[in-house]
């Protein structure tokens, strides 16, 4: 494991209408891990990601990506929002959505050209969606839409990937395809932070885990901390999950 810190969160507190959603979070994510964020509904998992990405303004705390504020490191970071957060009836094609991933490196005003298009096509191929490139996005299944979102993140060619429930509403084939791509990215030295719901698959898919429920419960390697004790602390009920120790 590389000792460099990919993400460092200090004393982060976020509130909606004075109700704290995240409370005094300290979190350090080493480079090169494939990390799950788990916790019950309303635990602030999406909010944590959105705060790191500057989409939500926290009321306290600081965040750094490889030692610098997010504003300076934008190009090192890719983001896959929840599939349900966008309108899939928007008049656009699969290829065009993937091209949006290149907008960040282009900056304001400049348009994507041949180079960006080529990168987008490659990303589509990687997720097995090349033959759907001209398909209107509402004509894609849930799993295909998720793959398009993944391709859009791949095209950003980032060092850190944030993904908000990438397995939500996808079939088993797509889930395996997606996790294989995530594992490949980790092998290539990338850092991945994934909001995840299915506790059963945590030991199989991830090597790092953060338990979150408004406060941070625990963070560390799956083999050390993914146990009934932490699950119970996070979910508040007595949890029994078969964990290989």
């Amino acid at each position: 494991m590389n000792e460099k810190l990919a993400i460092s969160v200090d004393d982060l507190t976020v509130a909606y209408n004075y109700k704290p959603v995240l409370w005094d979070i300290d979190l350090e994510v080493p480079e090169g891990v494939l990390m799950a964020i788990v916790g019950p509904n309303g635990a602030g998992k999406s909010t944590l990601i959105k705060s790191i990405l500057g989409i939500i303004k926290p009321i306290a705390g600081s965040i750094s990506i490889f030692g610098k504020p997010y504003d300076k490191q934008r190009k090192l970071v890719a983001y896959v929002p929840q599939k349900g957060s966008v309108d899939w009836d928007f008049p656009t094609t699969a290829l065009d959505v993937v091209l949006m991933g290149t907008y960040g490196s282009l900056g304001w005003i400049k348009r994507p050209g041949q180079k960006e298009k080529k990168a987008a096509l490659e990303a589509l191929e990687k997720v097995g969606m090349l033959s759907f490139k001209s398909r209107q996005i509402s004509q894609l299944s849930g799993g295909q839409q998720q793959r398009i979102f993944l391709a859009r993140a791949l095209v950003q060619n980032a060092s850190i990937y944030f993904m908000d429930e990438p397995f939500q509403g996808v079939d088993a084939t797509t889930e395996i395809a997606i996790i294989n791509i995530l594992k490949e990215l980790r092998k290539a030295g990338k850092t991945l932070v994934v909001v995840h719901h299915d506790l059963q698959t945590v030991p199989e898919y991830f090597d790092w885990v953060t338990f979150l429920n408004v406060k941070k419960i625990a963070t560390g390697p799956v083999k050390d901390i993914f146990n009934d004790d932490n699950l119970t602390k996070t979910y508040g009920i007595n949890y029994k999950v078969a964990v290989n120790k």
Partner: peptide, 16 residues
């Protein structure tokens, strides 16, 4: 380009 991405996906637009 900016109008398109911010209309389709506010979160991504902000992150980019």
């Amino acid at each position: 380009k900016e109008l398109k991405v911010s209309t389709f996906d506010v979160g991504l637009s902000s992150a980019l």
